[in-house]
């Protein structure tokens, strides 16, 4: 299984670079993971999304899709794409250290 080093810690990732074990993630890793995705600084709304992703993963075993995020995170779809232009659910999952959410909508 591939690994990568984030904030000085070695973590397990899959071939696409998503964390395979969310418990290896810490908040200190988020800024570095975000920079890898071209997000220079994490704002409060970014953190709202990150914490929501973590919560959903912990409760349901999978992160939300963009539709789920838009409906329940308190951040609108429009804002989500401003925060994570390269795909909100996908990029937020990377930054939040959870597997890529699977869903068609």
């Amino acid at each position: 299984m591939p690994t990568k080093t984030v904030a000085g810690v070695t973590v397990d990732v899959n071939d696409e670079g998503f964390f395979t074990d969310p418990s290896q993630w810490t908040e200190e890793m988020a800024p570095e993971l975000a920079r890898e995705e071209g997000i220079d600084s994490l704002t409060d709304p970014h953190w709202t999304v990150i914490r929501f992703m973590r919560k959903e993963q912990a409760e349901k075993g999978t992160g939300p899709t963009v539709r789920g995020l838009g409906k329940t995170s308190g951040v609108t779809v429009k804002e989500l794409y401003q925060l994570f232009p390269k795909g909100p659910a996908k990029i937020a999952a990377r930054v939040s250290g959870i597997p890529k959410p699977r869903g068609c909508i």
Binding site: V66, Y81, G87, A89, K90
Partner: peptide, 11 residues
């Protein structure tokens, strides 16, 4: 619609 929305979700 699903193809278009899915494309955007992938960036």
């Amino acid at each position: 619609l699903i193809m278009a929305n899915g494309a955007r979700a992938e960036g």
